[in-house]
């Protein structure tokens, strides 16, 4: 008691003097925060890359290049292909396999299926780890709160053995416990922001992919008919 009054309140001391459960909570939150930031940066690079490649491919495609040459270039994989390029390659490859003489509706149907399958795989890839960010955003404040509640419980329990209760007896315990909440919020806020941002970006990409699929099937149908 007499020692806690004149203790120094440095950040590291507070963490070191916390109870085991609070320290565990802090450790978990630090790990969660690290991974969430890691995924934030990873997704940032992936989505930025994807948007750039989609822009480039649409630009090339609507300029009216030879589709066979384009398909050749993509499948040779001499450069890193984007999602949209892979969707195009899947659809165009499927369309070419049927060649001539087969039923146009059946050909278009299988082409569409091939494109849809690739589209779903690509979207799955783009949206991977976004659910982790969402979970971090919603759960880590609760984890931090758990640590805080536990720390405050402890500091009040130690208050029970004192006849003259002062703020000085409870303050260090509460301060140390509140660090857990701070860490939870530190993990949660960027995760939520990043999740919303990346979800809207992937949504935009998804609509672009879908509209491209429709347009490509029209182009191919015209090509088969013509």
């Amino acid at each position: 008691m007499s020692t806690t009054v004149t203790q120094d309140m440095s950040f590291l001391y507070l963490i070191a003097s916390a109870s085991v459960l609070v320290q565990l909570v802090m450790l978990v939150l630090v790990l969660i925060s690290f991974f969430s930031w890691w995924f934030i940066f990873r997704k940032h690079f992936v989505i930025r890359n994807e948007i750039r490649k989609t822009d480039d491919f649409e630009d090339i495609f609507w300029r009216g290049v030879d589709l066979n040459a384009l398909h050749q270039r993509i499948t040779s994989a001499r450069y890193d292909s984007g999602s949209l390029e892979r969707i195009f390659a899947a659809g165009f490859g499927e369309f070419n396999k049927h060649a001539t003489g087969s039923d146009l509706d059946a050909v278009m149907e299988s082409t569409r299926r091939a494109m849809r399958a690739t589209y779903q795989r690509e979207m799955d890839y783009l949206e991977s780890h976004l659910s982790f960010l969402a979970t971090v955003g919603s759960v880590s404040p609760y984890i931090g709160l758990l640590g805080t509640v536990w720390g405050i419980m402890n500091s009040f329990r130690s208050l029970a053995s004192v006849t003259q209760a002062t703020i000085a007896h409870v303050a260090p315990g509460i301060a140390e416990a509140l660090i857990a909440t701070a860490m939870g919020l530190f993990a949660a806020i960027p995760a939520v922001v990043a999740y919303n941002r990346y979800a809207s970006s992937t949504d935009q990409l998804a609509t672009r992919f879908e509209s491209f699929m429709e347009e490509l099937s029209n182009v191919l149908q015209r090509r088969a008919a013509g």
């Binding site: 890691w38 995924f39 934030i40 940066f41 990873r42 940032h44 690079f45 992936v46 890359n49 993509i74 499948t75 994989a77 890193d80 292909s81 984007g82 999602s83 892979r86 390659a89 795989r121 890839y125």
Partner: peptide, 14 residues
């Protein structure tokens, strides 16, 4: 193609 494309860019940098 798929295998090459799923190697994410700049994981370490992240």
């Amino acid at each position: 193609l798929r295998n090459s494309s799923y190697s994410e860019p700049r994981i370490l940098l992240a």
